[in-house]
Simulated assay, not measured.
Amino acid sequence: MNWKSFFLGAAVGLAGGYVTKEILNHKTNVSPEKVLEHVKKQFKQNGTISGSWIHMVAEPYEKHQFTYRVYKGGISKNNNGTNEQFEFIADAKTGTLLDVRPLSEEPVY
């Protein structure tokens, strides 16, 4: 057996192992579309959705001294003939809802 071939094979194996480890350890964000789909599924349990949106870029958000990368979005739904609007904040890594708040309907002058 040729020592050059042995060391070349070992180097390629180590490099491949390192790259694989980095890929597996690197946690990527859930796509904004999947997060919006998940949020809509949650809201559909309590009424019909009339509109939705999501900001496609994750941004930093702090809650209870923890910092998250989040997507922000909104949902409009019909509840007994009344249109209600909500803003939501979802974790970009898991898609979990971190916060939901109703938007008050202020008259526009």
Rank of each mutant, 00 (worst) to 15 (best):
D99N: 07
I54D: 02
Q65L: 12
M56L: 12
L8S: 12
L103E: 09
G16V: 08
I23K: 11
E62L: 01
T28V: 13
Q45V: 15
V12L: 14
H38V: 13
I23L: 11
S50T: 14
N79L: 04
S76N: 09
Q42E: 11
N46E: 10
F43C: 08
K34Y: 15
D91T: 06
Q42H: 05
N78G: 07
F6V: 09
T94M: 05
T20C: 07
I49S: 04
E22V: 10
G47Y: 06
L97F: 02
Q45P: 11
A10V: 06
Y109G: 05
L24N: 09
G74M: 03
G17E: 02
K34N: 15
S31N: 14
E87D: 09
L8I: 10
Q42K: 08
N80D: 10
Q65A: 13
N46A: 12
F88R: 00
Y68K: 06
I75F: 07
V108N: 01
G16N: 06
G17V: 03
F86M: 10
E59N: 00
V30K: 14
N2Y: 09
R69H: 07
T48R: 10
P60A: 04
H55A: 13
S50D: 05
Q65H: 15
G73W: 01
G74C: 05
E37Y: 08
G16S: 07
W3K: 14
M1N: 04
V70L: 06
G73L: 04
G9V: 00
W3E: 15
L14M: 13
N79Q: 04
